[in-house]
Design a binder for these strands. Structure first.
Length: 197
DNA sequence: TGACCGATGAAT
DNA sequence: TTCATCGGTCAT
């Protein structure tokens, strides 16, 4: 029986967590059913010194509260008036950093994902942060939760060797000054389930 | 109370 | 490459 990752996993450096989340399984429990996928793409957001990060400069508002929880909590935010993005909070409450989950390879209850997405194409179900949130029915209800609880959590699955991890600049943050070029986007080389090529 | 805008997606 | 999109956020 797989177990969800220990709290200690999330309290490591944000870059390390972002890389090591690749190959692990994101599990959402919906009405008693498991909806899951293998994490194929992530992005690290490095807190107060990272202009692309919501908590840049130490900003602290109602929306950002989950980022100031200890590592191992969820941070779900709403964007573009229609999508949710799912993040894993890292390190400790003194460091408002997180990892955005950008893409999954569908695994369990794929039919349920198709119905939530309103699409049949496997490649269109979870290849993007907004898409995967929709496929797993992730909404604001799941914001600020401990990943040790049983609504949404992450299980160990397969180890991705460093040679299979591609590093690139992050998506959609052109406004972020020098941080826009930092190679904080990670994905599994040759995976068919990536948000952009 | 309301002006502003985005860690996107889909179509082209 | 372009653009629809609109609720939430945050400063007032």
């Amino acid at each position: 029986m797989p177990m969800s990752l220990p709290q200690s996993f999330y309290r490591q450096s944000t870059k390390k967590v972002a890389k090591e989340l690749l190959g692990k399984k994101l599990v959402r429990i919906y009405k008693g059913k498991r909806i899951s996928g293998i994490i194929t793409e992530t992005e690290a957001y490095l807190g107060i010194k990272d202009m692309a990060c919501h908590s840049f400069g130490g900003r602290m508002t109602e929306r950002l509260k989950p980022m100031y929880l200890d590592g191992g909590h969820s941070y779900v935010y709403f964007i573009y008036g229609m999508y949710f993005c799912f993040n894993v909070v890292t390190r400790t409450s003194k460091h408002p950093e997180a990892v955005l989950i950008r893409a999954l390879e569908p695994l369990e209850n794929i039919e349920l994902m198709k119905s939530f997405r309103g699409k049949d194409d496997l490649k269109q179900l979870t290849t993007g942060p907004g898409k995967l949130a929709q496929a797993l029915n992730i909404t604001k209800d799941l914001n600020g939760l401990s990943l040790a609880e049983n609504q949404i959590f992450i299980e160990d699955h397969s180890k991705i060797s460093p040679s299979k991890i591609v590093m690139k600049p992050r998506i959609g943050i052109d406004y972020a000054g020098e941080a826009k070029d930092w190679p904080l986007r990670y994905y599994i080389k040759d995976s068919q389930f990536i948000s952009k090529k």
